[in-house]
Amino acid sequence: MTVADEYAVVTKDLRKTYRTARGTRVAVDSLSLRVPVGGVHGFLGPNGSGKTTTIRMLLGLVRADAGRIRIFGHHVPEALPEVVGRVGAIVESPKFLPSFSGRRSLTLLADAIDAPTGRVDEVLEATALRERADDAFSAYSLGMKQRLAIAATLLKRPDLLIFDEPTNGLDPAGIHEIRTTMRRLADEGRTVLVSSHILAEVEQVADTVSIVGRGRLLATGTVAEVIGDRGGAVRVGVPDPARAAQVLAAAGLTVRPDGDRLLVEGEREPGRITWLLAQQNLWVHELTPVRAGLEGVFLELTQGTSLGAPPPDGDAPPGGAAAPSSAAAGGAR
């Protein structure tokens, strides 16, 4: 299997800088991404970390200063016309002319790509917009605007869907709807690349993730790999937490107080904790594995510092952003 067969999107040392009044700002810095074919790939990072710029470069809207991009093996932006038929994208908020109805906007786009006439009704149906299809875009709710944008991407029957912050501004029902739609599209065999700074929602739907900060890749892999590499923790309830902490620490485990409980890190086998404590006549009344969430991993990777928009050159601290984690070096499946 070649790289082109295995990965829908591959970027290598991608770099983009913007000139600002204060100097040059590096938006994307040596970013090497690999988005596997099929499934949902979460592209995560705080606001200003370079996600949208990267997506714009993938779509040929923004020109990279350096690096290479391949989509389904085609070099972008040079060969974009050859591959664009397989790519549907929503960049930031959905953008259509406000006075046009949803149906009119879709019809014009369908004409542009020679999609069959009936396709507009199909995608309106698929995104539950048929009843409001003739209303002006300006009269749509945020959720409906987002669904119209997804409908537009589906006109092409794309193999790769790129959604940039698709749930921004949506209510919980809208978020659930978009998440379900993304999952369904992936289950149909398509590749969905979704960027977000709301990690919890991506964690629920993504198969693989890449985490970026200040334009750099911090970690990538399956969700399980990215979370798993950082281990988990076990919450321990015991009558004498102070003595139990001493016992476990002496056994080489990392122990933190968690209210009237202990949080033990670095031990994936809870049975050993029970055994260690029982030997000292400390009888456990709670032993709960605490799975590390993607959000926890993200915060750990970013170490609580802002990894959003970096300052212009000259203001950057020595060493720049956080160094890539081992998960990044490990790569995806």
């Binding site: 714009r56 779509l59 932006p77 259509f96």
Partner: peptide, 8 residues
């Protein structure tokens, strides 16, 4: 930009 994602 939406247009260019259809016709680059």
């Amino acid at each position: 930009s939406t247009w260019l994602t259809f016709v680059p």
